[in-house]
Design a protein around this nucleic acid. Sequence first.
DNA 1: AACTCGGGGGG
DNA 2: CCCCCAGAGTT
Length: 301
Amino acid sequence: MQEVLADWFAQTARDLPWRAPDRSPWGVLVSEVMAQQTPVARVAPLWTAWMERWPTPSDVASAPTADVLRAWGTLGYPRRALRLQECARAIMERHDGTVPEDEPSLLALPGVGTYTAAAVVAFAFGRRSVVVDTNVRRVLARTLGGDALPAPSLTSAEMARAASVVPSDDADAATWAASSMELGAVVCTARAPRCDACPVSWACAWRAAGYPPDEHGARRKTQAWAGTDRQVRGKVMAVLREAHGQVGSGQAGNGQEAHGRVARSQVALVWPDAAQLDRCVAGLIEDGLVEQTGDELHLPG
DNA sequence: AACTCGGGGGG
DNA sequence: CCCCCAGAGTT
């Protein structure tokens, strides 16, 4: 199955920009952080612009945080952008500006967790690691477990099963990581799997069992969105991003101040519940995503 | 283990 | 309109 997937990957892999031969380890790390909970199709164009502007950890480390947050655009979870800059600075201080190659050192970096550390080891350095993202979880749950979907959260048993099937050879392990992820992203999808186009459908336990339905589907609760703090935070960040982008645009008198500063009275227009808005702004300031000067809010830096 | 944290595109 | 997306950090 791993050999078949390796061939399939070699022939059909998406030409994502961070898979280009001239990509850097730092570029791979940036792509992984950007792709945390954000579809890669939406990451790709932004990654290219980002890497052109800030090619190295040194460039990101010295950039104004406001520029970093604005460049992050609408990727979502902007705290990731903050951590990515902290990560760049940590690499400057701890590793002389070079992305470390060992998993423990990677794990110690801001914004780098179990998945991202393993992914950088495999994709940036071609070394063996246990790469388990949402795609790999689903592929293994179906092919090996015979289940429609994995459990809501990653279990230790799942990690153990994933580790047990990673090839011992470095190059083979890296290829397995890339191809199993690609299969989950392109063919073995959550919603409407394309089993007719799957190169390993002959080996799939879920298919062999007659596609039994998801066991714990009832417990799977969807993330709330409308009216939540996350939505309000997003609206506030959007206003501050746009204000920052209009510095020097010559559009005076539209209620937005110079230097990307926006009066709190203007920010208040994005949400009717004043108490909730205040709470969210306080949270954004607490997170380091927003700063307040006098009666005005702005991005940090 | 349970929460929080954005935003958008596909079915 | 609902669901899910190359997760991480905090409590």
